[in-house]
Design a protein around this nucleic acid. Sequence first.
DNA 1: TATGAATGAGTATTCATTCAT
DNA 2: AATGAATGAATACTCATTCAT
Lengths: 236, 236, 236, 236
Amino acid sequence: MPRAVREQQMLDAAVSVFGQRGYMAASMDEIAELAGVSKPLVYLYLNSKDDLFSACIRREARALTEAVRAGVRPGLSADGQLWSGLRAFFTHTARNPDAWRVLHLHARTHGERFAAEVAAMREEIVAFVTQLIAAAARDAHRDPHLPEDEVAGLAEALVGAAESLADWAGATEGVTAKQAAATLMNFAWAGLGDLMGGRPWSPPEDPGPEPVAHAAPDQAVPDHAVPVRATPVQAG
Amino acid sequence: MPRAVREQQMLDAAVSVFGQRGYMAASMDEIAELAGVSKPLVYLYLNSKDDLFSACIRREARALTEAVRAGVRPGLSADGQLWSGLRAFFTHTARNPDAWRVLHLHARTHGERFAAEVAAMREEIVAFVTQLIAAAARDAHRDPHLPEDEVAGLAEALVGAAESLADWAGATEGVTAKQAAATLMNFAWAGLGDLMGGRPWSPPEDPGPEPVAHAAPDQAVPDHAVPVRATPVQAG
Amino acid sequence: MPRAVREQQMLDAAVSVFGQRGYMAASMDEIAELAGVSKPLVYLYLNSKDDLFSACIRREARALTEAVRAGVRPGLSADGQLWSGLRAFFTHTARNPDAWRVLHLHARTHGERFAAEVAAMREEIVAFVTQLIAAAARDAHRDPHLPEDEVAGLAEALVGAAESLADWAGATEGVTAKQAAATLMNFAWAGLGDLMGGRPWSPPEDPGPEPVAHAAPDQAVPDHAVPVRATPVQAG
Amino acid sequence: MPRAVREQQMLDAAVSVFGQRGYMAASMDEIAELAGVSKPLVYLYLNSKDDLFSACIRREARALTEAVRAGVRPGLSADGQLWSGLRAFFTHTARNPDAWRVLHLHARTHGERFAAEVAAMREEIVAFVTQLIAAAARDAHRDPHLPEDEVAGLAEALVGAAESLADWAGATEGVTAKQAAATLMNFAWAGLGDLMGGRPWSPPEDPGPEPVAHAAPDQAVPDHAVPVRATPVQAG
DNA sequence: TATGAATGAGTATTCATTCAT
DNA sequence: AATGAATGAATACTCATTCAT
C-alpha cells in the first residue's frame, strides 16, 4: 500500500483517538491498532507522538478553513457572506466532531506549540470576519465609527460565540447546522435589543453553502437526517 | 498544621497544576511539591487523583457562581443586571486564570464525571441568563415572540460568547474585565447591525460590581494594574 | 484502660487480620482500627509489625499447646491419650480458625524467624506424640523394633495428617472436631490395611477432653451446634 | 528470542520468586530481573501479577498431576499403585520445591481465585486416592463396610499426610523421596497398631516409578545425591 | 495513656520509543 | 514496506513508621 494512503489512514485513526481521548490519554498503541498497522510504521511515517498530533492539527485546520472558504458566497453582502460562512462552519464541525474536538479542545490544552498552530488558523478566520465587519460598516455609508481594536473585540466575540455554538450543537440532539447558524446570525447581527423589539435578522435568499467534500468525515451526519424545525429567524 | 488549612493549600496547588498542565499531564508529585507536603498526605486527605480533580472543580465552580451572583445588581433592568454579572464574571476569571482553565478547558476534556460537574454549574448560569432575556422580552411590552427553545439557543450563544471572551481576555495583554464585558454587551445587546448603524448599547450608570473577595486567587491581578482605555461603547 | 488489657485487644485484632489476610497483606491501619486504638499506640506497645506478628505467634502457639496438654488424659493407654489429645487439638483449631491460619499457614510463609517460632511449638507436639508411640511399643511387650529415626518419621506423619485434617475440618461444613479425630485415629492406628480387613480402631470409653477455656476464641463454634453423625469407627 | 521461550523463562523465574517469597512479598522487579528481561516485557506477556501467579499455578499443578499420573503403575494392586504414586509425588515435590511451595503454601494463602485453582488439582488427586481405597475394599472380598463419606475422610487424611510429609521431606536433610513414601505407606496402610505388633507393610517388588522428565525443575536434586538409608519398613 | 499529622521508601503498571530483521 | 521483540523512564498509589503534643 502506497505511503500517502497509509499516512492518511494513520491520521484518520489519530484524529479519532486524539479527539475522543485527548492528547495525553491517547496511546500510540491504540492509534496504530485503529489504523491497522504496527507501531513502528507509525513512527517511520510520522516520527513521534508530538509530530503526529501536529500533523492532525494541520490537516484538520486546513480542512476546516477550506470548508469555510468554499462555503462563502463571494458576491453577497456582508451579512450574506457571514451567513453562508457560518453554515459551512457548523456543517463541517458537525460532520467532523473528533476533528473539531482536536482543534478546539485538545490542541489548546497541551503545550504552546499546538496552541500556536491552532491560533494561526483562528487568526485567519478572525481576519476574515474582521474584513466582513469593516465592509459592513462601509456599506452602511458611515464613517468608520468603530475603531480598529474595537472591531477586533467584536470579531473575537463573534468567532468565540460560533465556536461555543459548535460545541453546543455537537452536544445537543436535534440542533442542525442551519439552526445553529441562524441562532448566531440573529444574536450577532440583530442583537438582543432588536430581537426584543421584534426586529430579527432574516437570511438572504440563497441555497446555502454548496456541498463540501470531506476527505475523512469522522462520522456521517447527513444534513437531512437531522430534524428540521421552522427557522427561528422567520419569527416576527 | 490543621487539616482544613492543609487541604486548602493542596487544592490551591492542584488547581494551579491542573490548570497549567491538564488532568492527565498533571502529576501528583508536582502537586504535592507545590503544596509543600509529601505525596502520601495528599492521598490521605483527598483520596485519589480523580477525587482531587473533582474537589478542585467543585470548589472553583462554586467560587465562580458565587462571584457572579454577588456581582449582579438585583434591582436593575435586564441589561443592567447582565452588565454587572458579566463584569463580575470577567473579573473572576481574570483573577483566577488557572481555575478558569480547569473549569472551561480541562474538566470538559476528561471524562463524563467531570464534564457533568461543570455542566451543572453552567446550567445554573445559563438559566440565570435565560431569565434575564425573558424578563427583557416582557419589559419590551411585547408578546413573547421568542419561543422558549429559541431563547435557549440565544442564552447558549451569550454564555458561550462570554466563555470565549474570557479565554481571549486571559490570553490578550491589555484587555480588562470591564472592556471584555462592554464588548460583549455591545455585541449581544445592540447587535452588529445596530452597531453598524451607529446605535451602540451604553451602560447604565452604576459603579460596577462591588469588589468581590476571593478565597484563593490563583494569581493576583489587581484591577488597576491592567491598562484602561476609553470604554469602546462610548464610541459613536 | 490498663496496658495489659489493651495489649490483648490488639493481639486479638492482629490475629484476626493476620489470619485472614496473611502477614504481608495485613496492614497496621486495619489492625489498629479493629482494635479500636490509634496506630501509634500499637507501635508503643508492640514495637513493629514483625514484633506484633511474633507476639501473635507466641500467644497462639502457647494457647494451642496448652489446650492440647489440658485435653490429654494422663492415666490412659497410649491410644487413649492420643485420642483425647487429638480431640482437644481439633476442638481448639475449630474454635480459633484465624489463630490456626496464622500458625499453620502464614507463619511458615514469611521468613525464617517466624517459621522457627512455630517450629518450636511443633517440636513440642511431635515430641509428645513420639513419646506416645514409644510407650505404645513398650506396652506391646516387644523389643523396640522401631528405630528412633523411624519413629520420628511416623510422628511427623501423624502430626502432619492432623494438621491437614484441621484445615479440612475448618473448610468443610458439617465435620466436627470429634469426627476429625475419629477419622485420624482410624487412619493412623488401625491403618488402611486393617480397615479393609474389618478391624477398625475403636475409642476407649471416656467423656472426651474437658472443656477448655479459651482466652480469645476467634469465633464461637459450640460443639453441639455442629451436626453429629454416627462415629465412623463404630462400623465393623 | 521467540515469545514462547521467553514466557517459560518468566514462569520459571516467577515460580522461584513466588515460591521463596510468597505472592505479596514477591516483586515484579525481582521476577523480571531473575528472568533476565525488563519489567514491561513481563507485563506484555503475562498481563499482571495476578495473571502471572495464576499462570504459575496452572503450569505447576498440571506438571504435578502429570508426574503422579505418569508414576502410577496401572496393573498393580491398590497398595502397589498407591506406593508408586506416592514415590512419584515425593520425587516431584523434592525436585521442584519452589513449585511445591507455590501450590501448597502460597496459592492457598492468597485469594479465592488461586485457592480454587489449586483445589481443582487437589480434587483430582483425592478422587484418585478414593478410587484406590474403594478398590482395595473390593479386593478384600468384603462388603463395603466403609460408607462413602467415611472414605472421603480417609482419602483426605492420606493426601493431607502426604502433603505434610512433602513439606517435611523438603525441610529435613537426608530424607529421600523413597523414604518419605515408605514412611507414609507404613503409616497409612499398616497403621500404628500393626506396626506396634510387628506387622509392617512391605513394598511390592518393583523398580519404583520410571524417571519422570521435568520441563522446569526449580532446582536439580538428583535422586542419588540424597543419602539413602535402609528402608525403614523392612524393620520387624 | 493516647493521638493527629506527616513521610521515606517502595510497588504495580503504563507508554513512547527503538532495534534487528 | 513492514514488524516482532524489547526497554528506560515515569506515574498513581500504599504502607510501616515517627514526631510533637
